[in-house]
Simulated scan of single mutants.
Amino acid sequence: MIGNAAETLDHAYICGVTGNAALYAFTRSLGGAAPNDGLRVVGLSPGPVATDRLVSLMRRKAADRRGDPERWQELFASMPFGRAATPQEIGDMIAFLASPRSSFTSGTIVTIDGGMAARSRAF
């Protein structure tokens, strides 16, 4: 699991961007050699995921910004599909990548962010 800061390139989170970019390079490098040992190395880079932690943070933001913690979902309006990913969506991708159906996958990073990274690179 690698954070998607390596793709969004947020200047306010430069340490996270740098760390995640290093993990991308590590995953790709190791994944290229791993098949020699019968192994696979794959990274997964999710965007925001609607975990209990994220929902709790968004409730606090909604209380501060909108005066009502129950309006937290409105804060996702600008995100792709108007929401964060579900934990199930991330788990389904992990299960797929670990399965025989993905047995030729190594040295790559799969991004699940609804297109956020692509949008951040758009001109």
Rank of each mutant, 00 (worst) to 15 (best):
D52Q: 10
D64F: 05
P35G: 03
G91K: 13
N4C: 02
T18E: 09
L30H: 04
A21R: 06
G38C: 08
I112V: 15
R101H: 11
R71G: 04
A62T: 03
T18H: 14
R40T: 06
F96Q: 03
G91W: 10
A98N: 07
R53A: 10
N36S: 10
T105Y: 05
Q88P: 01
A22L: 08
T27N: 06
G3H: 06
S120R: 10
A34L: 01
S78N: 14
G67M: 00
G19M: 09
F26M: 14
F26W: 14
L30F: 09
T111P: 00
A62K: 04
M116S: 08
A98M: 09
G43I: 11
C15N: 15
E74C: 01
T108H: 06
V55I: 15
R66H: 13
R28L: 10
D10E: 15
P80Q: 11
G91L: 05
S99L: 08
D52T: 11
A63T: 00
V55P: 06
G115Q: 02
R40W: 04
A12G: 14
Y24F: 10
T111K: 04
Q73V: 05
T86Y: 09
D113Y: 03
Y24N: 12
L97E: 03
H11W: 14
R119P: 01
D92T: 10
P69D: 09
Q73L: 06
A12M: 14
L75A: 09
C15R: 15
F26G: 01
A5N: 12
A63N: 03
S120Q: 10
A6T: 00
V110K: 01
